[in-house]
Structure formats: C-alpha cells, structure tokens
Design a protein around this nucleic acid. Structure first.
Lengths: 257, 257
DNA sequence: GTCTCACATCGACATAGGTTAGCTCGCCGC
DNA sequence: GCGGCGAGCTAACCTATGTCGATGTGAGAC
C-alpha cells in the first residue's frame, strides 16, 4: 500500500465511521471565516455525505468541459492545473481538505484548466441545485463561501509573486508556510508539521522549477535546519526563520478579519 | 508634455466632449459579454460620469486600506501590484480601459495589494451604494460584471503559466497578445496595433524579468519581425506567429461563450 | 526473495536570465 | 543654452536554475 493510499484510507475511517467526534474539514475551514450555526454545520455535513475515494492522478474536471457540479475535497491533495502543448504542466492552485472548487460553476462556460487529484483524495460532488439550495437557506454559509473565494484569489496573487519575484528557496519556503497555515485551519497540522502527500515533481510543477532543482532546494532548506521532510511528512523546524525567508504574512488567508 | 499625458489628454477629449458618438470602454467591454439594453448602457454611462484624470504612478488604493468604492478605468493603464520588502515590485494584473476593480469591495477586508496608475489615467470611482443600486436594477449588468470577474481570474491563471512555465520571449509574446485582444474588445486597437503607455521597467515587473532582459527580449521579437514597438505604440506584425509562439488561446477572455 | 517501478539523489555541464555600469537621446526646467 | 533626468539601449560578466545521465532506495507484485 502506497503512502498516498494510506492517507486516503486513514481519513476515510476518520470521516466515515466516527462522524460524531470530528468536524469535517469543510466545516472547520468555514468556521475560520464566519460563525456557523448548528443548522449550517448540519447542512454542510450533508453536502459532504456522498464523498468518494478517488485514486491519485485522476481528473475531476477536464479542460473544455462544462462543469455541472462543484467539488469539495475532504481529504488528500488535489490541484488545478494546465498543460502546455510542450507537455510541461503548471499547477495553478492546490486544493486541500475543506476546499471547494468552482462554487460559481453555474455561471461558468467551459473549463480553461483541469482539476485533478495528486494524492488519493476523498471527494464529494455537489450538484448545482444542492449548492443553490444551501446558499439560499444559509446566508452565513453563502458569506463564508464568498470569503473563501476571496482567500483563494489572494493566494493566487501570492503565487504570482512567488513565481515572478522570489528565488527557489524563498518560493518553496513560502509554499510550505502557506500549506502549513491552511492545514492548521482544518486541524490537519500539529507542531508545525503536516502531511505532504505529493512528489517532488508535483512540487516542481507548482513552483515553476525542475524536479532536480526542487531536490537541491529541499536539501538546502534541510541543511539550514529550517525544515524536515521525510516520507510524506513535512515539519517546519524553525517557523519564524522560514517565515522570514519567505516573507510570509498569513492574514491574506483570512479576508475580512 | 510626456507621452503618457498625451494619451490621457487625447481620450479625455474623446470621452468628455463627444460622448454621443463613442461608447465608453466600460459599455464596450461588457457588451462583449452580454447584450445590454439602452437603459443598461445609460446606467453604466452614469457611473463613469464623475471620471477624473489621474497622474501616472499614483495609487488608487493602498495596502491595508478598506476600500470604500470600486474603481473603473476609462483610459490609460493601471495595475494591481505589490512590493516585496526587498523593494522589488510584482505587477499582479493590468487594468485597461473598461476594467472594473473590486466589484466585491463591500465584502473585502483590508487590501493585501495596492492599485495604482502606470500611465496617466481617466478613472471613475463608484460608491458602494451606486454599485449596489445598479446591480439590483440591472441584472444583465450584474451578470456581465460576474463574467468579467471570471475573465479576470482566467487571466490570472494565464499569468501563472506565464511566470511559471514560459520563457521570456514566450511570456512577452503572450502578454502582448492578451493586451491586443483586450484592447480590441474596447475599440482601442487597430490593425493588430495598440498603445502601450508603460515603460520597459513596468513590463519587467509584470513579466518577472529584469528591465535589461526585457529590452533584450524586445530586440529579439523585433529582429524576428514579430513586433514593432516605437514610442508608446505596439504593433504585432505577424499575429499568427506571435500567437503560436505564445500558445495564445483567446477564448479564456470571454467566459460563457 | 527477487523484480520492477516510481521517486529521490547526485554530479557535470549548459544556458537563460540577472547584475552592474555606462552611453545616448529627447524633454523639461531654469 | 545648460544641466539634469528618465527612458531606452548595449556590453561584459556572473549565477541561479535547467538538462542529461547515472545511481540509490523502498514498497508492492508475484
């Protein structure tokens, strides 16, 4: 059994069997943005009910498709990505547990990029109608989804700065800070560490680097004692220094605070 | 009088004195996305009524501010940008005539980036109330604004690919294709040419390159007969080749078509 | 156990792009 | 008319990152 599958399996147990004792990542994420009522939470949990386990490297939406549903990631890492005709892939956004993809699916024309899993993922599809219903009946949830969208846009802006203006080490440090913060927000990080169920090649395609250089850069961060990365688990050993190196400023992840 | 001021002045005449014979860039832009009624157009023109001429290199919104109004650019080039602590500037988006900035201002917390003019610009501010009113009374306009936002997001994704995966020449070619297409959509391009009222340094900060390398790259594009750029006016001499070089695919600029 | 495959790692070399510095030209203020 | 300034342009040199090829390593399949 691969690491990736481990992760998927582990959380199916968590999400499936003991639903009572753990909040879903979707609820956790939105609770960082607004105060949810018990009814709001119940409605959200119902959305994630029909979640399915998806294999690594599986497309959830293809280029050119007209998306009928939105998608919520409940466990594992997925991404938005696009291929150049030369074959290079650029990852445009990482979708972590709790992230909702394409809330405005209804307005959308054809997808100009694809969405796919990186690791094994637990994913729920939300039909256009279900989405419309919850937005209409739960204004607080609607507001939370809007704020989440703003955070996604702010994140995209940070990525532009990453790719346009930061060196390889700074980029990587910034990405790690971002991931840690986002995973903390859904209860998936402890002691400045988290799972990182993706390969160095995936990392390369998100950071706009070659996989070889990703490897070199990781070595450097390790050598400086800034991070540990073994197997699929990442730890930021010196968070203040990593943040300083990355010029990481968390508030952009929580708009309207 | 500088080039940039020339451009501002020229269009003030166009937008101010003969309002009857030329549609505002805002109306033109939205008409690419939806079919506007006469009333819709009138309402939009009223929004742009109080436009003012702003000097080059002037901030319209600052980092940390809570934006009270949205902003429409009616002439000239503006941008979203952010400075690193090291002083480098990354331009996150270019705002061209017809572009509306921060329609969801009301939901917004503090600005995580700044908005400022590059050239002299004709700019109208739209109060939160005026915006709410037009969105409520003119659903078609509301829809157009949503679609415009989707186009802006698609553009940001293209920029991520630009910065992450394309070479300097490809990047620049792609940017030029994008600008030409966007300016054509508001009637500000003719015969594959348009104004480009920004410096090579501005270009460098949007493309994530040094100004020296921007210059080199421009020379190369000129040498290959792909573009002409003199003074502040750009012409794509071989549009098919430039598009091929850039892998430019226009439809992303017109969602839902 | 052994085979295989994906991933990580390493070294040697190539190159795109950055840096520094300086020159020119047109415009503006005085 | 002179000095200064911003922008474009060029050349020489430097370095971060890419490319290529080889090797190591661990986990699953059988």
């Amino acid at each position: 059994m691969s690491h990736a599958q481990n992760i998927g399996a582990a959380s199916i147990v968590r999400d499936g069997s003991h639903e009572a004792d753990a909040k879903s990542p979707l609820v956790r994420k939105l609770e960082n943005l607004v105060r949810l009522s018990r009814e709001d939470r119940a409605a959200l949990d119902q959305l994630s009910a029909g979640a399915r386990l998806i294999e690594p490297h599986t497309d959830l939406m293809r280029v050119g498709e007209r998306p009928a549903d939105a998608v919520v990631v409940l466990d594992g890492f997925a991404c938005r990505y696009k291929h150049r005709v030369t074959g290079e892939r650029q990852i445009l956004a990482l979708l972590l547990p709790g992230d909702v993809c394409d809330v405005d699916a209804p307005h959308l024309g054809r997808m100009d990029h694809a969405v796919g899993t990186l690791s094994a993922c637990l994913v729920a599809r939300i039909s256009r109608d279900a989405l419309a219903a919850i937005v209409a009946r739960h204004p607080t949830v609607a507001r939370a989804l809007r704020l989440a969208k703003l955070a996604e846009e702010a994140t995209a802006r940070e990525w532009l700065i990453n790719l346009g203006a930061r060196s390889a080490t700074e980029r990587m440090a910034h990405l790690f800070c971002e991931l840690l913060t986002r995973l903390e927000a859904v209860g998936l990080a402890r002691e400045n560490g988290c799972k990182l169920p993706i390969t160095q090649l995936d990392l390369a395609d998100t950071l706009g680097l070659s996989s070889v250089h990703v490897n070199r850069t990781l070595q450097e961060l390790r050598r400086k004692g800034l991070i540990e990365l073994r197997g699929r688990s990442l730890k930021l050993r010196d968070l203040p220094d990593v943040r300083a190196l990355a010029e990481f400023n968390p508030p952009y992840l929580r708009p309207a605070h």
